[in-house]
Amino acid sequence: MVLMMIEIKSLRKRYNDNCIALKEITCSIGAGVFGLLGENGAGKSTLLKILATVIEPTGGQVTVNRLDLYSDKAAIRNQLGYLPQEFGFYSRLTGFEMLEYFAVLKGLTNRQARKTQVNEAIEQVNLGAVKDRRISAYSYGMKQRLGIAQALLGNPQLLIMDEPTAGLDPVERNNIHNIISELGRSITIVYSTHILADIEACCSELAVLRQGSLVFTGKPNELAALATGMGWQIKDTASVKDGYMSLMEAAR
């Protein structure tokens, strides 16, 4: 097992001429679960897409285990799983068939090895009971888990997910938390969310983006600690929410 170490230096992204999505992002992401918070339009999806090598940055550098994200794209994609914000499913296929199809695309050409991997991914997201049902019969939460299974094919060491819990009911959201916590013991996971309880449930580190800049990186309890003494009413102990709100208020 290789531990992933992502180093981001002065990363910039500009769309068209006038829209600056990211300005001078510098941070490092190590092993474990890394959460990404921020307002709508702050640049979360842009950052995740760059890390997933889907779009190219305008400037700056990203290395993954010292490999350059762009010159060594293929080597990095080998170790990468990505779940975008809106993932398309082939609803006439069964869950198993769709994963098998994606596994072929990922270059798993050996039939037996592919089957083993697909079944492993299905087990990791607890879809064993419905793997032979058509995706059109899946609930929203099952589809989301299938999306994660797809990202797990090829045993990635780095898993990137854009709002994996959006729109999920509490049980499904909890399923995703459990999957993330379990996977996060062995691989690096980077994901974005609007739901602060997601951060408290699974993240070891997090970053907050605001208008294209990083305004916080650290541990959840360090973010929570920011709330202390900033005039926010605090119950027993400061929560991640308290910290987030005071950080954003101070950044105004």
Partner: peptide, 30 residues
């Protein structure tokens, strides 16, 4: 849905205020 943490906080409080004078029924997962 789709609102960021600050917006959620603002609207939660807004719904609470609005509910002092009317019936507010909303569905949520969170």
């Amino acid at each position: 849905s789709g609102l960021d943490p600050q917006e959620r906080y603002y609207f939660c409080n807004l719904f609470s205020q609005l509910s002092s004078e009317r019936i507010v029924l909303l569905s949520t997962h969170i």
